[in-house]
Amino acid sequence: MKPLRAVLVAGTVTALAACSASNMVRQEPEPSGNAEQQQVLQSNNALLYNRLRIVDTRTREKNDLLQVQATLRNQWKFELDFQYRIKWFDADGFEINPDAQTWRQLVLPGSNEANVQGVAPNSKAESFEIWVRE
């Protein structure tokens, strides 16, 4: 099992959030014991912290390519319309094809969950980060 690093970083979610001192939410599920994912949540953006969470991350390696699935939960009662992007990193921590990874759209109804999935661009990927923005 490759060492995994999953981070959810939220960018500007609303104009209001953009005015706050910082608008980053970071969730770091760390591998522990028998490949169980431990959820560690740090946030200095109360707005986003309360609205979007990673509730689960799963990874597997198929055909030499790392695959990831993250379950995002909209904890707000209204619809969240945002973009997400998966950044892939090699063993040395270098991002793979930074310009090639596109932002994908996601509309998440209130109080709902969605699984976002991604496949590594090549077999060198060993870790990933999931970024979200409005």
Binding site: K62, N63, Q67, Q117
Partner: peptide, 11 residues
């Protein structure tokens, strides 16, 4: 993005 991800994960 969707097409590439789909193809690369199709066994």
């Amino acid at each position: 993005g969707k097409m590439v991800d789909d193809l690369l994960s199709f066994d």
